[in-house]
Amino acid sequence: MYDFTFHRPTTVRQAAGLLARNPEAKLLAGGHSLLPVMKQRLAQPSALIDLSLIDGLDTIEQKGRAVVIGAMARHADVAKSPVVIAAMPGLASVPGSVGDPQVRNRGTIGGSIANNDPNADYPAAVLGLGATIITNKRRIAADDFFQGMYTTALEDGEIIVKVSFPVAKKAAYEKFKHPASGFALVGVFVSKRGSDIRVAVTGAGSNGVFRVKSFEEALKKRFAAKSLEGMSIPATGMNADIHASAEYRAHLVGVLARRAVAKATA
């Protein structure tokens, strides 16, 4: 790992100031994506700005018809949060399925979403519920936020402060876990909130998380696993690697979507 300077601001405003003064700086949340990448010398930030001393960045609360999760909320805390479990057990299961217990003890929702790893779990839930990402500058709709592998709408100097998830009556996540890495080989999040139906897929697409409009249309007629019977998506644009071919990933999207809808309607 290349060396860097280390900063521990106590307010979001201070963190933003540090970012502005250090153009090559990076924010540090749980460090469980950034530090491994720095060890491989694939990233060389001049400074790390640790967000862990900022008060109130890790709150989890119900606000009206939304569950609002602070950027520094750790995966383990969201997974067992009574607020999240009461509102949407399907959402709690997403951080609950991440990596292993020690990773869940450190990793955060803000870091996961900002990183936008194409195999990460949270992006599926954020897109699959139509959440809003609240930064120190603005509110960004999930549909505009994820912009391809490791790419988001975040601009220089922008800090995720919290993520607001509208409460959906029906919501569930199904993940085909890569047995070694724990990441999603494919993961599908489905939700139904009134007439708003979403199917979001992580792990499969070579351009990161995406929605499956054909599945959403079919589920609009009836939100049941049966509505997706025999449906699949084309293999073009799917990831292919030693773990799974594009065709297999496309196949899994159909299978996991049906399982997720079955879970959401059980």
Binding site: L28, G31, L35, L48, D50, Q102, V103, R106
Partner: peptide
């Protein structure tokens, strides 16, 4: 519990 190989001393 945390993995001390993925945590900085300064953290």
């Amino acid at each position: 519990a945390a993995k001390s190989c993925t945590t900085l001393a300064l953290q």
